[in-house]
Every structure is written in C-alpha cells, then in structure tokens.
C-alpha cells in the first residue's frame, strides 16, 4: 500500500505550476520522484527514466522560486534558517525542498535562489515486510540517491517498532517521519521516539542518553561525526539501522568515510537497493 505525498508536494508549488502538476495523469504521477524548478527554465518532473518537462507552464521566474520558499517555510524563513543554510527546507508532510543558488558569505545561507527541487515523499507500507519476521541485526541500507533508502528505512522502523522494539529515530531533516509542528506525517510505529531538527550525531547521542533505545535509526550517514555516533551507539549495545549513498558494500569500503564503519564491524548486514525502471530489487549482504 502506497501513501502518496504528491498532494503535499503540490502544496509548495506556485499556483500556476501547481495547477498544471495537478493535471499530470495518474501513471506519471505515481512515478514522479521530484519537481525541479530552475530559474529561466521550464518546470520538470523527475521520473525514473529521467526528467520530463511539465507541460503547459512557462519558464520559472524569480517570483516562482520565492513563492516555493514562502510556501515551504509558511512565510517564515527565519524559523528554518538553520536548514536553509544547509540547503534544504522540510515542509509539511515531510516534503523536502532542496534550495540552490547564490550563497551569501558569513554563514548567511542562500541569498538568491536559482533552483529548487521538491521531493515527493512516499510511504510504501510493507516494503520492508520481508525482514520483519527476522531477528534484527544492525543493518545498513545502501543505494544511489533516489533509490528508495528513506522509504525503506521508514517502513523498516515502523515494522520494528510495531513488532515490539523500542526504536529511536534520529530524523535530522524531518524527512523520515514527516514531522511538522510536532505531528508525524508518516506512520513510524507505536514505539518510535523521534528526534528531529538537530544534527544526526548530536541527536543520536541525545537519544542514547535520554530514550534508552533498543534500535537507533538514522537517515544518511554523511559525515565523520555520524560515523562516530554510530560507533558510540554500537558500543552501548544498541543496534543500528541507517542508510548510506552507494552502489554496495564494496563501494563503501573504497570510501574513507565509510571504511571505519565496516572495519569496526558496526553493521552486520547490508541491504542494497537497485532500481530498474519502476521496480526495486533488494540484495542482502553480510558485512
């Protein structure tokens, strides 16, 4: 069962683009992963086979991009300035809006926005079902960007949590649980405690200290601090569920950031996601 975030993604598009995007036929709508708006270019849908122009819309203007930011931040960019500085905003329903443009010096974030990407969040209930009955060991979900790591992580967290485990989810960008004003946009399970809005490594340590989790879940290990937090959690006897960009364990082993994770044996298993057209295949590998 797929819970579609397409409508949520439409809500952050400017009116004229939203009108056209609402008319996209069902088949294409289900496959849309992102909307791309680039200044001076035509709005585009990102589909598994590539980008396709959104018909019936003129080129994107400055006002369109400003409107996206206004809608994504509820006209309050000051309230999300930390995440804007990092190049994204998470809107209601876990819709991640990536922001790109001319950077202001001195940590001032994006000054002039030149393009945005609006991700369509999806919850595919049961996509992690095949692992639900198994005893959980620390697992790393690996795929290239857009492969469905976050979707799998979300469902795996839900199933583990509903299965009786106390799960702590460190959701830095609010994308996994889709948090907005304290309410989760997605079902992440009965026994899941979610820490959102703070850097993963800090959030992970706070969760360890405060929530006594059996399983610690986090999206996208991208920095040495995240690796250190994983190691610390593993040393405390907490099992881990995390995601990483890559083609597989061999690819991760070749990268200095991930090598310590593999060398220290923090994760016991990898699930590698491959996307072929609309289908996803999953390959398990011992680490």
């Amino acid at each position: 069962m797929v819970m579609d975030g397409y409508e949520g993604a439409l809500a952050v598009l400017p009116e004229r683009i939203r009108r056209q995007a609402a008319q996209v036929p069902g088949g294409q709508r289900d496959r849309t992963a992102e909307f791309r708006l680039r200044r001076g270019r035509f709005p585009a849908l990102v589909l598994p086979e590539g980008e396709r122009r959104l018909e019936g819309c003129g080129p994107v203007g400055r006002e369109d991009l400003e409107r996206v930011l206004e809608l994504a931040t509820e006209a309050s960019p000051y309230a999300t300035e930390e995440s804007i500085r990092q190049g994204f905003v998470t809107a209601a329903g876990g819709v991640r809006v990536g922001v790109c443009g001319q950077f202001r010096g001195g940590g001032g974030g994006i000054g002039t926005v030149t393009s945005v990407s609006v991700r369509v969040p999806r919850q595919i209930l049961g996509c992690a079902g095949r692992w639900a009955g198994q005893a959980f060991v620390s697992t790393l979900l690996i795929s290239p960007p857009g492969g469905g790591k976050t979707t799998l992580l979300r469902d795996y967290v839900r199933l583990l949590s509903d299965g009786g485990a106390r799960v702590a989810l460190c959701d830095e960008r609010g994308e996994v649980a889709g948090f907005c004003r304290g309410e989760a946009g997605f079902d992440v399970g009965e026994r899941t405690d979610v820490m959102t809005g703070c850097p993963k490594h800090q959030g992970a340590l706070m969760l360890l200290r405060a929530m006594n989790p059996e399983i610690l879940a986090m999206d996208e290990i991208t920095a040495p601090e995240d690796v250190a937090a994983c190691a610390q959690a593993a040393n405390c006897g907490v099992r881990l569920l995390a995601t990483a960009h890559g083609d597989g364990p061999e690819d991760l082993a070749a990268r200095p950031l991930y090598r310590p994770l593999l060398e220290q044996g923090i994760f016991s298993r990898a699930i590698v996601i491959r996307r072929q057209g609309r289908e996803r295949t999953y390959r398990e590998a011992a680490l």
Binding site: T73, E74, A75, S76, Y78, A79, R181
Partner: peptide, 11 residues
C-alpha cells in the same frame, strides 16, 4: 513570538 519562541508567522 518570532525571536524567542521561533513561531512561524501564521502561528
């Protein structure tokens, strides 16, 4: 409300 509580403008 804005500077201390960091509420959004609709709030």
């Amino acid at each position: 409300e804005v500077c201390v509580r960091r509420l959004s403008l609709p709030q």
